[in-house]
Design a binder for these strands. Structure first.
Length: 574
RNA sequence: GCCCCGAUAGUUCAGUGGAUAGAACGAGGCCCUCCUAAGGCUUAAACGCAGGUUCGAUUCCUGCUCGGGGCGCCA
């Protein structure tokens, strides 16, 4: 929806060869200049004239009944328009679309597959690991919102050296609990480093697993599922959910890999090295030659015949490709970039299509409030913020506030709100940062709930709900003829509301949702300005009361839709 | 050494080939007889360095510096 697009028609009509789409509209830098700014750079280029000249010519032209005044300002044309008429259209469109407002149906009739999270079953997820889940889940919401038929996959790494060691260490622990697994995992890895015999036992166990020994498989499955359940419980608190769980162990010795090996042999790219490992020479199949053969060799199998991660992953990628989605996405940490390129090269060589990868950078822990020092999170070193710990602390702090503000609500409702606020705090703080930048995680800042935070946005919605409750009667979904929203605060908010579809469409193309986070924040800020400047319930006329109440409802709907994409819920009160 | 990403107020993040580069935290000064102060108002404060392309570059390109990630038996 661009409410101003029909202003383009009279302009385009006046100049042969100009299409309405050549003319863009946007908010002017400030409302003193005008209500709407017309961007003429593209049109001027097409007409081979200077933008300023075109603007000057248009300032004197008839631009239709809704344009009150047109003023050229250099290359820009600023319009003073019938604000009320546009306001009515915008609010009407939002209230009519409801939870779908912002979607353009870009995925209608298309199928998509997204794989995300896929963390090793070894510990409770920390905030850094959870970035994958938050980005993946948010993208999944975006694709569904735009109409894609979407399947969310989780690749369960239930096999491999580290899991083997963990299973070995868990051997005589009948009553093993989820929160003990990390310590066990760390100990097992440390022991394997120091004790070759223990490490050898781990590989033996792994070999038995690969051979399909039923007893061994059961032992692996037991440990893996215990861990997976624990992890999913924590991720579930964030509102993250999956449709399919694909176990890595199902992709051992997959016959679909035979043609892949054939394709490699055909280019003489597959060889057994002098230590009996099965290796791919990627340069022979088109991988760029780099200094010191960086990234050139890709090991598929160990000397003892057991498979490497990449081997199984090839089969998994072929399996996912076979599900026939129009769009096949995988969310990966930036540490997987080289690896993913290697895998893609091998798949491509065999005529397969690798999934489209979306990468994100690590989350770093900020060390102190006013310095830029930070540390990397390391599960083994224990300097991590566990997602569950953050949620616990944030929920407790939020609960204390809710107890003051909403003491009339049931304890259960209060708990729900506190949990929503906690989720809003983490998801917003992580999702608002561009994926390819490191996130500095500042525990203190994220627990304060003030400033540029998820809770600030949620709070603005709670204020809207409060107004709408006090409005008392049922609010009509259709704006009345008399819709006198004309102040700057109202207009600035309306311009922002009308922009959601553009933001969402842009996100889909860019495979990111961080602009939505920024958008939600800006919208909440503009609402707050409106809130302070424009009384709703005590407005001068009944028509104005209703129009402002409807603007409130439209704002709430818009922010709620944006927050939905981020996986953040909107409490009725807080 | 090589490859990939990043660099914007003291700090954490936005943003754009073109109109005065937006917020927030922190610092100073204010505001609850006013629809929720998890709020608002106000003061000070920024595009790493050097070239290039362009009418115009913080944005695009190159080099440098600094930070993050990676480069055959982890997943």
């Amino acid at each position: 929806m661009n409410p101003f697009q029909h202003l383009a028609a009279p302009i385009a009509a006046a100049y042969p060869g100009l299409e309405p789409d050549d003319i863009g509209f946007g908010p002017p830098p400030n409302l003193e200049l005008g209500d709407v700014a017309v961007h003429l750079f593209q049109a001027a280029k097409k007409l081979r004239t200077a933008p300023a000249k075109l603007a000057a010519a248009l300032a004197g032209a008839d631009l239709g009944p809704r344009v009150i005044e047109a003023q050229a300002a250099g290359p820009y044309l600023n319009l003073r328009v019938d604000r009320a008429a546009f306001a009515r259209e915008i609010v009407d469109a939002i209230l009519a679309s409801g939870p779908c407002f912002g979607a353009s149906g870009l995925g209608a009739g298309k199928r998509a597959l997204i794989e995300h999270t896929s963390i090793n079953p070894n510990a409770s997820p920390h905030i850094g690991r959870a970035r994958n889940a938050m980005i993946g889940d948010s993208l999944a919401r975006l694709f569904r919102f735009e109409g894609f038929d979407l399947e969310v996959h989780y690749y369960v790494n239930d096999i491999g050296k580290q899991i083997g060691l963990l299973v070995l260490a868990a051997a005589d622990r009948e009553d093993l609990a989820f929160d003990q697994i990390l310590r066990l995992y760390v100990e097992a890895n440390a022991r394997a480093e120091a004790d070759p015999e223990f490490a050898a036992q781990g590989f033996d166990l792994l070999a038995k697993m690969e051979e399909g020994d039923p007893d061994t498989r059961a032992r692996f499955r037991k440990v893996v599922d215990l861990c997976l359940r624990g992890q999913l419980g924590v991720l579930g608190r964030l509102g993250v959910a999956y449709d399919c769980f694909d176990y890595e162990s199902a992709y051992l010795k997959d016959p679909r890999l035979d043609p892949v090996f054939e394709a490699l042999r055909a280019k003489d790219a597959l060889f057994v090295d002098d230590e009996q490992r099965l290796v791919v020479d990627l340069v022979k199949i088109g991988y760029p030659q780099q200094k010191r053969d960086a990234g050139r060799f890709f090991v598929l199998m160990r000397a003892n015949g057991s498979s490497m991660y990449g081997y199984r992953d090839l089969a998994y990628n072929i399996d996912k490709e076979g599900r026939g989605a129009d769009l096949n996405l995988v969310i990966l940490g930036e540490d997987h970039k080289t690896y993913q390129r290697q895998i893609a090269q091998i798949l491509d060589n065999a005529g397969h299509r690798a999934p489209e990868a979306v990468y994100y950078a690590y989350i770093l822990l900020k060390e102190s409030r006013d310095s830029s020092d930070s540390t990397k999170m390391s599960t083994r070193q224990g300097n991590v913020v566990l997602l569950s710990d953050f949620l616990d602390q944030a929920t407790a702090l939020a609960a204390a506030r809710v107890a003051e503000q909403c003491h009339d609500l049931s304890p259960e409702d209060q708990r729900t709100i506190a949990a929503q606020v906690a989720v809003g705090a983490v998801r917003f703080s992580v999702l608002r940062v561009s994926p390819n930048k490191n996130v500095m995680f500042d525990m203190e800042a994220n627990l304060s709930f003030t400033g540029d935070t998820g809770p600030y946005i949620q709070y603005s919605c709670a204020r809207i709900q409060s107004i709408l409750r006090k409005y008392g009667k049922e609010l009509p979904q259709i704006p009345a003829e008399e819709f006198p929203l004309t102040t700057d605060a109202e207009w600035a908010l309306l311009l922002k509301l009308a922009d959601l579809p553009n933001v969402v469409a842009g996100c889909l193309n860019q495979r990111t949702t961080s602009p939505v986070a920024q958008y939600a924040l800006e919208t909440a800020r503009l609402f707050t300005t409106f809130y302070h400047e424009c009384p709703v319930l005590t407005a001068e006329t009944p028509a104005l009361v209703q129009a402002r109440a409807q603007l409130c409802a439209a704002t709430r709907q818009t922010i709620a839709n944006a927050l939905y994409l981020l996986g953040i819920e909107v409490p009725e009160r807080m």
